[in-house]
Every structure is written in C-alpha cells, then in structure tokens.
C-alpha cells in the first residue's frame, strides 16, 4: 500500500506539472464553456416568457446547438484524453532507465502499474468533475434554473459512466505503453484502436447487416420482419464498440424522454396514441434499469483491459528493461 501511495503522489505531481495535462484540460474546459454558452443562450431565447419545463437543466449537456453537444464532445474526445494520459506511462520509465531502479526498491511490482492507472483515473475524474461543475455554474446563470435532485443524480451517473469509459481508454494506452518500448508507437497503436472503434465498427455494422439481412423493397412496401432482422444485426455488431455502449448509456441517462436505447421502435396505432398522450419523462430508476447492461459492459471491458495490462506487466522480464 505504501508503495502505491508514494508512486501515486509522484505521478499526480507529474501530471499536474505536465504541459500535456494543461493543454488537454484547457481544451476541454474551453470547448465546454463555448458549447454551454451557445446552448444556454439558445434556451434562454426560446423560453422567453414561457414556464420552464421540467428537467430543462440537462439540455445544457445534451442539446447540440450549432455544433455538437457536450456529451457528444466527451464521447468523441474522452478516449483521446485517456490515451494522452497513459500512452507513455511505462515506456517512459523504461527509456529513462528508471524502471529497473524502481523495481529494485522494496515495493511490490504491481504497485507501479496500479499507481499509474489510479493516478490517470484521478486526473480524469478531476477534469470531468471540474468541467461539469463549470458548465453547471454557467448554465445556472444563463437559464436561471437550479438543478433539482434528479438532475444532479443523473449528472453524477453521467460523470461516473464517463469516468469508467475514459478509464477504459487509459487502460488501452497503458497496455500499449507496457508492450511497446517507444512512446510514439504506443500512442499510434492506441489511436488506431480508437479510430477503428469510432469509425469502422459502425461502418462495418451497416455493411454486415446489409450483407446478412438485406432490406428489399417489395410491392407492399418494406417487410417489417426483414427490417427488424436488419436492425438487430446492425445493432448487435455496433455494440462491439465501447463508443456505442457509452453513447447509448449516457444519452439515455441524460435524456429522460428516451425510453429505450434502441434506434428503431416499432409501434402499433394504440401505442402511438398512448405515446402522444403521455409524453412523460422516465423516473431516474427506470432510466438506470434501461442502461444497466451497458454500464456493466463498460465496467467489464475496463476491468478486462486493466487486467490484461497488469498481467502483461507482471510477466515481463525485467531483463528487457
């Protein structure tokens, strides 16, 4: 425990002193503030003279405004944050020849990798919480609504999911920093994985579903069964990507009007009728129930990723240091 604490303290100090940390947090804060002020002013404009609807506060995070929403931004940029914080965690020590020195001190070998991972997670948490608080503060001023208990709890869950998700990417980049000697190689490898998951999986999903279950026009329009099959295959394939998991989970948590994570909802006339009559937000607990599988999956892949990282690091011959 002592070893972890000492290394953790040093790593935190390193992060705070690094230009990299400064740049990333400045970028995230800047983008957050710009998006929020745009969105906030738009909301202000639209709601002039109207009673404020419930749960309007969350719109600050989810409405896209002219560019993209804050949630989308974190979904896209979050992985990069994780990668930046971790891609040279181990190989930096290797190149500067401090790793062999570190392991010859009376500490457990795993405290090195644990402390590196935990310090990265702590930094991510600090950046996320600070940004969300900043946006909330700005939002309160702009739209004049103080968030209620439910909104705050939804935001907390959002931060937790984001933290887990970005930690997954931190784990990926630390894994590559264990495997590759060169920081540049490990950064590029992490970026390649990121690009693969963010662009190619969704592309691959639609190609695959088109190939396996093509949707064809018949005389009586599109066959519903065919459409469902097509949709299901596409959905299952795209769930391979942690990005899909994350964006579905966070949008559902932050938007109580969303009642499912699915994109295609088939309804009969009566259901459609009741939907239009009872347009009510879901209670928090129900939203959580919908995304529980997603959250568990994110936790699982994060733990798995760190587990592999830990295993590889512990098995590595010190000789190669």
């Amino acid at each position: 425990m002592h070893g972890i604490l000492t290394i953790f303290r040093k790593e935190m100090g390193d992060h705070f002193n690094s230009l990299r940390f400064l740049l990333i947090s400045a970028l995230i804060v800047m983008v957050g503030v710009i998006i929020t002020s745009m969105v906030g002013m738009a909301i202000q404009e639209e709601l002039k003279g109207m009673a404020k609807p419930t749960l309007i506060f969350l719109l600050l995070f989810t409405s896209t405004g002219k560019l993209f929403s804050f949630v989308q931004f974190i979904g896209f940029f979050g992985p990069l944050l994780g990668i930046f914080l971790g891609f040279d965690a181990i190989n930096r020590e290797r190149v500067s020849r401090t790793l062999s020195k570190l392991v010859s001190q009376p500490i457990f070998r795993d405290s090195i990798i644990n402390a590196k991972f935990l310090s990265g997670v702590a930094i991510i948490a600090i950046i996320l919480v600070a940004t969300v608080l900043l946006i909330s503060g700005l939002g309160i001023r702009l739209i004049g609504v103080v968030p209620g208990v439910e909104e705050v709890s939804r935001l907390i869950i959002y931060v937790v999911i984001s933290l887990l998700y970005i930690s997954f990417w931190l784990g990926i980049s630390i894994l590559f920093s264990v495997i590759f000697r060169s920081a540049a190689t490990s950064a590029l490898a992490s970026l390649a994985i990121w690009i693969f998951f963010s662009f190619f999986v969704s592309l691959g999903a639609s190609v695959l579903s088109d190939a396996v279950a093509p949707v064809t026009q018949t005389a009586s329009g599109v066959d519903a069964e065919m459409l469902i099959r097509h949709e299901r295959i596409q959905r299952l394939t795209s769930l391979v990507s942690p990005m899909t998991l994350y964006s579905e989970a966070t949008t559902t948590i932050l938007d109580p009007m969303r009642k499912t994570t699915r994109t295609l909802v088939l309804m009969g006339p009566l259901e459609r009728f009741s939907m239009s009559r009872f347009q009510n937000p879901l209670p928090l607990l129900e939203s959580i129930f919908i995304v529980i599988p997603h959250i568990i999956s994110i936790v699982a892949i994060t733990l798995l990723c760190f587990g592999i990282c830990y295993f590889v690091f512990m098995r590595q011959e010190i000789r190669t240091v």
Binding site: S96, R97, T98, L99, S100, K101, S104, Q105, P106, F108
Partner: peptide, 18 residues
C-alpha cells in the same frame, strides 16, 4: 521484499527522473 530493503542495486547506466 526483505532482500530489497537491505540491498542496494546500482544498475548499469542508471536512470533518473530528468
């Protein structure tokens, strides 16, 4: 652990946090 507490090791080309 017991060994490393009382034994010092200076590797070849020792590295530091520059």
């Amino acid at each position: 652990f017991k060994v490393k507490e009382k034994v010092g090791y200076l590797p070849e080309n020792v590295g530091f946090y520059d």
